[in-house]
Design a protein around this nucleic acid. Structure first.
Lengths: 247, 247
DNA sequence: CCAAAAGTGTTAACAGTACACCCATGG
DNA sequence: CCATGGGTGTACTGTTAACACTTTTGG
């Protein structure tokens, strides 16, 4: 944080901070919202209603609200992401599993002018996914399978963002709460295994998966829930994830 | 990317994109530059010469250069980070080990107005660290041990950024090239182990470390270099890291 | 010759993998 | 009664951790 301020130091120092006179970028917050539908990983896309990229599919998002006064500087990035998530999905703001991925800021990514995009990942339980309505502005929103989202042309550099988000949740799958957030509140071992398999795109051994699962129960990360569930033939025990700690 | 543009859709559409009229934040790029000095992890801090936080220590950095026209939108974020790194250290731009960490954007973090900071981590070989001169603007720059940097009051939210960067390189230590970049071009097993120990703050077993090291040689990640080096009593074999792949 | 670091060997515990198998039950 | 997923057992392999040990050589 120096260059423009330094220039000020050489010249007689002005009252107002001079870096405010330099051109500034617009900052958007874009969301990669995942869920599991029909045994596969989906994400939420919006059909753009205006240029640029009119009619193209894009990630839901919006501009960061910035205040102009020193005492009201606007909203926090995380709040902006939470607000967009609520606006676009209509879901209650309890889904506080938003994680900042990184900034995408290549010049030219938005033809209108310099726009930085702060990308966030969110995870929606499949039980909540059908509740998603088409955003406050009645724009077309749809759950799209990830492979389709990666093939289809998207607006801006959103394909790159999706690619990054996908790699990210895959890497975090075993070291964070990702899987627990993509499964109903209560779940069976088989259901959790299905989520793992779908995200990694590989079939895992039921026995070995169960063995790792019982360790989670022993460590108190997961607890037995009342009732059983009939997914296949034999009813299975039901479990619940106990909040935070995974690793 | 919608809210302001949507409003435009309801009203008769103006020629110029209207989101340009909304207030925008300033965007800075801040660097956490690590090196190893005197058997411990250090990072580069700058003594601020102007308010706010005059005389406080801060991370080196500067503002992102943003173009105002549609065809010149300014510099890329990574380029801005590389430029700052070169400006602040005077080192040749070959040190292309810059990694974006994340954005820090809490309102109020800069009293002058809304400023987002994109944080980057950089790793400097100990052989290059002494070459660092005091920046183009002759401001005081110093290598500071990480624990001192975390204790001392820093400008803005830079302590939080340092904390994050530290956690990040610790987490990536075994899954990336971090260690190889904090060691001279050629190095002995003991030297690499010392880097590991210093970053993790724990003494590792020499025998076990060596065993893991020979696997790296077998996998072609590291190769033997000519010569030997006398670090302690018995001269040790010298190795070289072969570029990219680690995992 | 000896301190100190390089380098080797051995073992127990443990986690991952593959695969065979029994169990319970809804249709 | 049987197909199907729930649930158990087992043998093999590789990795980690702890620690005892030998080797080399500058001072």
């Amino acid at each position: 944080m120096s260059t423009p301020a330094d220039r000020a130091r050489r010249a007689p120092r002005p009252r107002a901070p001079d870096f405010f006179d330099y051109p500034r970028p617009s900052v958007a917050v874009d969301l990669v919202i995942f869920t599991i539908l029909a045994e596969s990983l989906h994400l939420l896309l919006i059909r753009r209603g205006e240029p640029p990229f009119e009619d193209r599919w894009a990630l839901p998002g919006g501009f960061l609200r910035v205040g102009m006064s020193a005492d009201d500087q606007g909203e926090d990035l995380d709040d902006a992401a939470a607000r967009e998530l609520a606006e676009e999905t209509g879901l209650p703001p309890g889904a506080h599993d938003l994680v900042q991925l990184r900034v995408f800021g290549r010049p030219g990514r938005d033809p209108r002018g310099r726009v930085l995009s702060v990308a966030y990942a969110a995870l929606i339980r499949p039980t909540h996914a059908p509740l998603v309505r088409s955003g406050g502005d009645a724009r077309a929103a749809a759950w799209v399978p990830v492979d389709a989202a990666l093939t289809r042309p998207l607006a801006f550099d959103h394909r790159e963002i999706v690619r990054y988000a996908l790699d990210d949740i895959r890497a975090r799958l075993d070291r964070s709460d990702v899987a627990f957030r993509l499964v109903p509140e209560t779940f069976t071992v088989g259901e959790l295994r299905a989520v793992h398999d779908v995200i990694l795109g590989a079939e895992s051994d039921p026995g070995n998966f169960r063995r790792r699962f019982v360790r989670l129960v022993e460590d108190g990360i997961v607890e037995e829930a009342p009732g059983r569930r009939i997914t296949g033939r034999k009813p299975a025990k039901v479990y619940r994830w106990r909040g935070r700690p995974v690793t």
